[in-house]
């Protein structure tokens, strides 16, 4: 009973945390906007300065929404992969899904010059990029899944993910030879990761993709719980393994793929956040873990984005640099702790 109470309190705190950090995230930046003004702008009122209003609606608010969507989506895709692969170190970035998505995007942005102009403009549209990116991550996920069936070893799967990363970067490198300076710049900016610069149209598209992925994940909560006992026990509990696996893989690829398409490959969020949720809630029950991962994902991404804005200065750090500084130590710590977790 006390545990349920503890969880309720934690969930309330986390939800408040998301709201608070959302507002703080909007108020921080090269121009600092007082929290009171942010509140009045968001609740439909008028802020005392026209420029503040403009900055909030056209720049800060879309970025904060993107941060929330990216944080939630990547974290959930990481959670799904960790349970599906029975591997605490799985995540969209480490297993090469982001590399696959990069390859898809690179093919579209950089390879467009090899195609006739009409088709090129068609596929470089946001829809084309999302599709290519999702297909890229889907392909890599299928490949990793095929390999993981032969290799039950945690480390081997991670090395395979690493190899996919090298392979895709080699192909991307080759593609850059055939592209123009403008295309190359576009791709380089994309690959650094960026939560800003998304139009409201792109955000709606990203929201739809994230909503589909998250909904499918909610329907996978029960199968994921039975998978905690391993494939054979799960089947003996009446789980349609093949069907559930397809749904989980589809949800993971659409989440990781669409997010990577819009925000670039963002490192470590998918791996680290589920562990924070597991650590704080001390459970493997996906009924609890799903929602806590969702909230922690939003919180983590809002914090990382606020840091990357370097409040008070004109500099903006690439978001990938911030998430890596925060995420890489967590991976090292997990590897050191792994022996204990596995035995």
């Amino acid at each position: 009973m006390t545990k349920t109470n503890r969880n309720t309190v934690l969930f309330i705190l986390l939800t408040l945390g998301v709201v608070l950090l959302f507002v703080i995230n909007i108020s921080l930046g090269s121009v600092s906007i007082p929290l009171k003004e942010v509140f009045s702008s968001l609740t439909g009122g008028h802020s005392s300065k026209e420029t503040w209003q403009y900055i909030i609606i056209n720049y800060r608010l879309p970025k904060a929404i993107t941060a929330v969507l990216v944080g939630m989506g990547l974290s959930i895709s990481g959670l799904l992969m960790q349970t599906l692969f029975r591997n605490p170190l799985a995540g969209p970035y480490v297993l090469g899904l982001s590399s696959g998505a990069s390859l898809g995007v690179a093919t579209v942005i950089l390879g467009a010059s090899l195609l006739p102009p009409f088709i090129a403009t068609l596929i470089v549209s946001p829809y084309g990029v999302v599709l290519a990116s999702s297909l890229g991550s889907f392909t890599v996920l299928l490949a990793v899944l095929a390999v993981s069936h032969r290799l039950r070893d945690t480390m081997a799967i991670l090395i395979v993910g690493l190899m996919f990363g090298s392979l895709t970067s080699a192909i991307v490198g080759t593609l850059t030879y055939f592209s123009t300076a403008e295309q190359l710049q576009k791709f380089t900016f994309w690959s650094l990761g960026n939560l800003g610069n998304l139009s409201w149209t792109s955000i709606s598209l990203l929201s739809i993709c994230a909503a589909i992925g998250l909904l499918l994940s909610i329907f996978s909560i029960k199968p994921l719980n039975s998978l905690l006992l391993g494939e054979n026990y799960a089947k003996s509990l009446g789980l349609n393994y093949k069907k559930s696996r397809v749904i989980i893989i589809f949800a993971t690829s659409i989440l990781a793929g669409s997010i990577t398409a819009f925000a670039g490959p963002i490192a470590f969020i998918g791996l680290a956040v589920p562990h924070i949720a597991k650590l704080v809630f001390q459970t493997s029950n996906h009924n609890v873990l799903f929602w806590s991962t969702l909230l922690f994902g939003a919180i983590t991404m809002l914090i990382c984005d606020s840091i990357s804005q370097m409040p008070g200065s004109d500099i903006t750090l690439p978001i990938n640099a911030v998430t890596s500084i925060f995420g890489a130590p967590i991976v090292i710590w997990l590897l050191i702790r792994k022996r204990k977790m596995m035995s």
Partner: peptide
């Protein structure tokens, strides 16, 4: 069923 296989690591 009760199987011989080891359970995957989890917090269950």
């Amino acid at each position: 069923v009760v199987l011989t296989e080891k359970l995957p690591p989890s917090n269950l």
